[in-house]
């Protein structure tokens, strides 16, 4: 099973490179470089914190663009072009196919975020003579959150087309960051523990303005990532298993 999942994931990664995902990274890295001269001149310490905040924001947008562009049409496109027939007829299970697809996407997302973070570090070194190592905590949180978004998109894409996939994924992303608003009232407090929140991944403040987050918090983020990704993929597998291709 692992070999088949790995082969599918490698196929997704190779296809992503052909789609020139790297151009998206370069584009947003260029935006970052252009943004530096426009940062307010509060003094070196404050300016570096603002730089980290802008860098994390651009990294987040980059990862979101990469995740949605990869996930929106991957499964619908393979079904429409019938390339999925070649895969499933080889004895590959639908669960293996979906998980392999997601693993490949997560690999590309994580690679994109890592590449972008490395560029941020180089810019920080040149501009502020500071490697800003805690940016990698931010990178990890962004990669994990976009892994969840990709899993949601893959699940939705098993039964619908790209436009609905993007719309639904963005809606769930925003809802995931609006727990206190949507279930913050007294009447809804009982629902709060059950609400699948993405707020755990929001560590912009401690990374940009503080000294990062402790290892136990990172472990918590990983647990949330595993739980939400697993839930989304299980739903995707159930939906895809019932679909006529």
């Amino acid at each position: 099973m692992i070999a088949r999942v790995g082969s599918i994931a490698l196929g997704v990664i190779a296809d992503s490179l052909r789609r020139k995902v790297v151009y998206v990274i370069v584009f947003f890295a260029g935006l970052l470089a252009l943004a530096i001269p426009s940062l307010p001149d509060y003094g070196v310490g404050v300016q570096a914190a603002v730089f980290r905040e802008v860098a994390l924001a651009l990294s987040y947008i980059t990862a979101l663009v990469v995740a949605l562009s990869l996930a929106a049409n991957r499964v619908p496109g393979e079904v429409e072009r019938r390339t999925v027939y070649n895969v499933l007829s080889k004895g590959v299970g639908r669960a293996e196919y979906l998980i392999g697809t997601w693993v490949g996407m997560f690999g590309v997302i994580a690679g994109s975020v890592a590449a972008f973070t490395a560029i941020e570090q180089i810019v920080a070194l040149i501009t502020y003579q500071d490697a800003m190592w805690r940016l990698w905590q931010g990178a990890l949180s962004i990669a994990l959150e976009m892994g969840v978004v990709a899993a949601i998109a893959v699940a939705v894409s098993t039964v619908t087309g790209p436009v609905v996939v993007v719309t639904a994924s963005l809606a769930l992303l925003f809802a995931g960051h609006a727990r206190s608003t949507l279930v913050g009232g007294e009447g809804a407090l009982a629902l709060k523990p059950l609400y699948p929140s993405l707020d755990a991944f929001n560590i912009v403040n401690p990374v940009a303005h503080g000294s990062g987050v402790p290892a136990t918090y990172v472990a918590g983020m990983l647990a949330v990532f595993v739980g939400l990704t697993g839930l989304a993929l299980v739903i995707g597998v159930v939906l895809f298993s019932q679909r006529d291709l």
């Binding site: 190779a14 019938r82 007829s89």
Partner: peptide, 28 residues
């Protein structure tokens, strides 16, 4: 089992050998 669908289509970025290698791996 081997199956060839009507008008088969493959990921266009692959080479002929690359495509067959992918399906060989999937077929163990």
């Amino acid at each position: 089992l081997g199956f060839m669908p009507e008008q088969p289509y493959f990921p266009q970025h692959l080479t002929a050998a690359g495509a067959l290698r992918l399906y060989a791996r999937l077929a163990d």
